[in-house]
Design a protein around this nucleic acid. Structure first.
Length: 553
RNA sequence: CGGGGCGUGGCGCAGCCUGGUUAGCGCGCCAGUCUGGGGGACUGGAGGUCCCGAGUUCGAAUCUCGGCGCCCCGACCA
């Protein structure tokens, strides 16, 4: 197949739009792959759509290979389904009414809808099942941006498995995991399969597929030594050892004027920050205040707190803090606080300085278990100074794009929606589900993030918009034409640049667009009938006879 | 939700502080000539509700207020 640049809608740009920041954002816009319509809402131009479809096809083939069945569920969804699962309160949902006033949502994912259909699975004889579709999702993100990385409207492949029991779910989960590895490998992406935080999906176990990238919204933690890897939201790396001052038999009040930060406090008391504790009050949905306590040199990982509590939390505001503690930020602590206290595991042993709940005062020698009774949970955010929990090795932190996420949902959706079946033992049971998502647009963005140079994109072959980019220079149009036909006959998709442009512009566009090979026919070709074949990734160039094109190279 | 920045032809920007004739520049676009292996040169053109609204003023891209849009940071600083 040959596409002629002179006839394509292929608006390349010499300069990146000023609002672009991420490399993938700039290059995809400059290369004429995508255009923005509104914040987080994009059009795939013809070139971008070609890449998109190649990604989608790989996903489809790998889903089909594990026996998942493709279908298509609608975007417009009755609110009622979401009310039944209790997910209707999620803020990101776009809501709308029809002319009669009936409520609809535009779904973030299709668990509700697919489970609605799964009600037709009535017997264990009909299980297991695996269904998927590739469809539009809508999310009213608070902060869309970074090109294709965080969208408000996007296409997602989401698959759902239905099993009799946990053992069946495990099998489905592993099948999908394998399919994901093959999918990302075939797309040429470097990804890490790591434990993750299920977030609003609910469910128990989940795994993220993170593609390291210059721009991204996840942080991938890996060990330099062994193969430990995790999303920072669930990473359980080892904090550095604390340095405690002398032990006290009971907490002791001490005036700490103006010391409202850990650094100031540690300096004022001449102690190591690891011997201090930080009180971070949060509020839950019902408005009650929960105190999260971490070591002074640690940061709270909010996702962990919310996982520990089993519900979303928000940092308490000044008024809520004052009301609950009688003091304001900078002097807060566990002692005297009447609500629920969750302390990080690092605070289990030892004595710490804590706020006294009295402005300008702290307590020394505060000991969990003796002076207050917290619940313990892993709450701290991994730090670069941590060490690997498995081998003690040094850690590496990288920003990454979450290109896939798989969940063991259990009966989170089947129970409220009544997707039950009759088991062999004659008992009615809820179907055990899993859900598996991939964002093709994010794969595109991640590929560009991972494979580019100063001149443009260097697409992995499997998802390049065209296999070969033939540049026709003045006088050699006919040879270019023949080269394109030869390549096409060999089964390659060819972009033939037959525009009346200068050589430099054509080369620049070819580099920008990033097809794996570039074939140039120009003045030199008129002499010997050969063309220059250049590898986009390595820059290597060789002269070949037109007749030899498409053979191997 | 908070903080900051931006909004002027398709793209990138200047002008705004210190209101004043036909609102500039580069790229791109159209026509033509010369050119032709890494964004060439020259000539002549087309293209703008200066984000929207209200206000101040004899006069607003410019000042004031309100709104909208877009981008970035933070969503924790104990």
């Amino acid at each position: 197949m040959i596409a002629r640049a002179s006839q394509l809608f292929l608006p390349t740009l010499r300069e990146a739009p000023s609002d672009a920041d991420a490399v993938s954002h700039k290059l995809l816009v400059r290369g004429g792959f995508i255009r923005q319509v509104a914040a987080g809402v994009w059009t795939f131009l013809p070139l971008g759509w070609r890449v998109y479809r190649k990604v989608e096809q790989i996903i489809r083939e790998e889903q089909d290979r594990i026996g998942a069945q493709e279908m298509l569920m609608p975007v417009l969804t009755p609110l009622e389904l979401w009310q039944q699962t209790g997910r209707d309160f999620i803020e990101e949902i776009f809501r709308l009414k029809d002319r009669k006033g009936a409520d609809y949502v535009l779904p973030l994912t299709h668990e509700e809808t697919v489970t609605f259909h799964a009600r037709e699975l009535q017997s264990y004889r009909q299980l297991p099942q695996m269904l998927y579709h590739i469809a539009i999702k809508e999310r009213d993100e608070p902060r869309p941006g970074k090109g294709l990385i965080r969208l408000r409207e996007f296409i997602m492949k989401d698959a759902y498995s239905f099993d009799r029991d946990e053992a069946g779910l495990d099998v489905a989960f592993q099948k999908q995991r394998g399919a994901y590895h093959r999918t990302f490998d075939r797309c040429g992406l470097v990804t890490h399969d790591v434990p993750a935080e299920p977030g609003m999906m609910g469910g128990k176990e989940s795994r993220d597929f993170l593609a390291p990238a210059g721009a991204g919204e996840n942080t991938l933690v890996t060990c330099e030594n062994c193969d430990y890897a995790a999303d920072i939201e669930v990473a359980t790396t080892t904090p550095r050892a604390p340095v405690f001052p002398e032990r006290l038999d009971a907490p002791e009040e001490i005036e700490t004027p103006g010391a409202t930060t850990i650094d100031a406090l540690a300096e004022f008391l001449s102690i190591d920050p690891t011997a201090t504790s930080k009180a971070m009050p949060h509020v839950t949905q019902d408005g009650s205040v929960v105190l999260a306590l971490v070591r002074g040199d640690d940061r709270l990982e909010e996702a962990k707190l919310s996982a520990a509590l089993g519900e979303p939390v928000w940092p308490a505001d000044d008024e809520q803090i004052k009301a609950a503690f009688g003091a304001s930020g900078g002097s807060l602590g566990p002692i005297g606080f009447k609500g629920r206290i969750v302390a990080d595991l690092a605070l289990r042993e030892g004595q710490f300085v804590a706020g006294a709940n009295r402005d300008g005062w702290h307590l020394r020698g505060v000991e969990a278990g003796r002076d207050f009774e917290p619940e313990f949970a892993d709450l701290r955010e991994s730090a670069e100074t941590d060490t690997c929990p498995e081998c003690g090795g040094a850690l590496r932190f990288q920003t990454a794009i979450e290109v896939g996420h798989i969940f063991k949902l259990g009966t989170r959706y089947s129970e409220p929606l009544g997707a039950t079946f009759l088991d062999e033992d004659g008992r009615e049971k809820a179907v055990v589900m899993g859900s598996y998502g991939i964002g093709p647009a994010r794969i595109m963005a991640a590929a560009v993030e991972q494979f580019n140079d100063e001149n443009g994109i260097v697409w992995p072959r499997a998802i390049a918009p065209y296999d070969a980019h033939v540049v026709a220079l003045p006088g050699a149009e006919e040879i270019a034409e023949r080269a394109a036909e030869t390549l096409s006959a060999a089964g390659l998709d060819v972009l033939l640049d037959d525009r009346d442009q200068r050589a430099g512009e054509k080369f620049a566009d070819a580099d920008l667009i990033g097809c794996p090979i570039r074939v140039t026919a120009g003045k030199k070709s008129l002499e010997d009938g050969k063309v220059d074949v250049r590898d986009r990734a390595t820059g290597e160039e060789k002269r070949l006879d037109v007749a030899d094109l498409g053979k191997g190279a």
